[in-house]
Simulated scan of single mutants.
Amino acid sequence: MTTTPSTERRTVLPIRPELAGEEPYGAPQLDVPVLLNVNENPYPPGDDVVATIADEVTRAARGLNRYPDRDFPALRQDLADFLELESGVRLTHEQIWAANGSNEIMLHVLQAFGGPGRTALSFAPTYSMYPEYARDTHTAWVAGRREADFTLDPQAAAAAVREVRPSVILLASPNNPTGTALPTATIEAVCEAALTVDVDGTGAPAVVVVDEAYAEFRRAGTPSALELLARYPHLAVTRTMSKAFALAGARVGYLAASRELVDALRVVRLPYHLSAVTQATARAALRHRESLLAQVDALRGERDALVAWLRARRHPDGRPFVVAESDANFVLFGTFGDRHAVWQGLLDRGVLIREVGPEGWLRVSVGTPAETQAFKDALTQVIEPDSEEA
């Protein structure tokens, strides 16, 4: 007796409807000589930093049979001390929170203050993960618009807050993907408007989050929202150790805010969410903050030189490149009728940048001088095929 092979059964899973067909977030990860697409620090930690991290991780490893300290006050105090040295703003460890990258910090914020029947507001173009945090927490998402030069008009932003009445407002400064920093007056206007929201009729203001992932790369004189924390208990400022501290692989982000706001995040965090190894790595790196941050000035200079170089370029039709002002470690430039062709042309020459942001624009991270020169050479060859050098 013969049997007929069964037809292959298609797997059907009860995925949430709003997730059906969605692709996981992420920039392309390709093996090319020059990687300038995800705003990493191009300089690895020095041997002294690596040695300290190795020693501290070894010490932590001896206790890996035990759960880590779930509230990690020592790391939080180290982060508070760093922020005071950098900004002059004195904070206690109870005003600091940390997680696996600023991504998890943002998710904690939306878990605590978003949710069904609530709305998150931001202003596009901005970080493409923000609407995903909202989606994943069943929070409605509204994106206002920035000005043509990617700045944010304070009156227009305040008016949007009063109209939308969100429970969470997300402001990136410097903004990703544009590099635009926000003046203090703009953040103040949003914080004041947030006081009028009255979330769910409770009298509570909207929570304002200023995402300062690239804060260490700000140009001289560009303020930090940390200076406003004492005035606005509903304000939070997020930072990361991925960029300036060259710890993208360690996944450490943190937040500064009022004790009450931090305590709300502690309610929604998973138990023991920050591993003992991560805590040890972060604390070891903070002991070497001077050497780790020593490259920041060089990267700022490289960025400013790159902006100037790009502004001197012209399209084949004679139009000058348009380059956004940047206080970050990347530069947004354009505009191209077919930006994908330019991106592909660079990739074909071994240089990977990011196809992100408004249509027609491309974003390049600041690399080492050699990496930046490779980008310049490749872009010149793409734009001017007959040219052999930048």
Rank of each mutant, 00 (worst) to 15 (best):
D297C: 04
G117R: 08
P68V: 13
N100V: 13
Q373N: 12
D377Q: 15
S387A: 15
S326M: 12
E18W: 11
P14N: 14
L83W: 04
S275Y: 04
A220N: 15
L171K: 02
P17S: 13
A112T: 07
F245N: 10
V342K: 12
D71G: 12
A206M: 03
D348M: 07
T137A: 01
E8W: 07
A264Q: 13
S128E: 14
A250T: 15
A378K: 01
L274E: 09
N329E: 04
A181T: 11
T180A: 12
E188K: 12
V331Y: 07
A27E: 02
S242V: 01
T126M: 00
T137D: 05
P174E: 06
D297G: 11
Q111M: 13
L379K: 06
R66W: 06
A244N: 08
T240M: 01
L261N: 04
P42W: 03
A378T: 03
G117D: 09
N175F: 10
L107W: 05
T180Q: 13
Q344T: 14
V342I: 14
V342C: 00
R118H: 06
A159S: 12
L182N: 01
G144R: 01
S87R: 02
S6K: 15
T139R: 11
D386G: 08
L352I: 05
D31M: 10
T240N: 01
I383C: 10
